[in-house]
């Protein structure tokens, strides 16, 4: 969740954890979402990771506005990846 420190150069933080049915799916999502860099180079960092069945994403940002855009776009992308897995994931598993 977003939080703000009291110091003057305070940074916003946002942590997201997404559970997947299996480690394989969490790993696929991580590798699909990782390659593209943030369009904005300054004022925001995003770190993705996966452990076991959980995909995790952590942001630090200077401004809420920038954070919102990045998180919103990430969630859109995540939803697309999950939908793709739902529709096209079955045949190989059978």
């Amino acid at each position: 969740m977003a939080s703000r420190n009291s110091s003057s150069d305070a940074q916003l933080e946002f942590v997201l954890e997404v559970p997947f049915p299996s480690q394989r799916e969490a790993s696929i999502a991580l590798q699909a979402l990782s390659p593209d860099q943030e369009p904005r180079r300054r004022g925001i960092t995003k770190t993705l990771g996966a452990s076991a069945c959980t995909l995790s994403a952590k942001w630090t940002a200077d401004e809420a506005r920038i954070l919102r855009v990045s998180v919103g776009s990430f969630l859109d992308h995540l939803a697309l990846v999950i939908e793709t897995m739902d529709v096209f994931g079955q045949p190989v598993l059978q």
Binding site: I28, A29, Q31, A32, L33, P35, D36, P39, H77, L80, V81, T84, M85, F88, G89, P91, V92
Partner: peptide
């Protein structure tokens, strides 16, 4: 254009992994 390219790449990356 960046945003449309990303959408397409996301699906390509996902199915490439799903289908190995």
């Amino acid at each position: 254009m960046g945003a449309p390219l990303v959408i397409v790449a996301l699906v390509a990356r996902t199915v490439a992994q799903l289908w190995e």
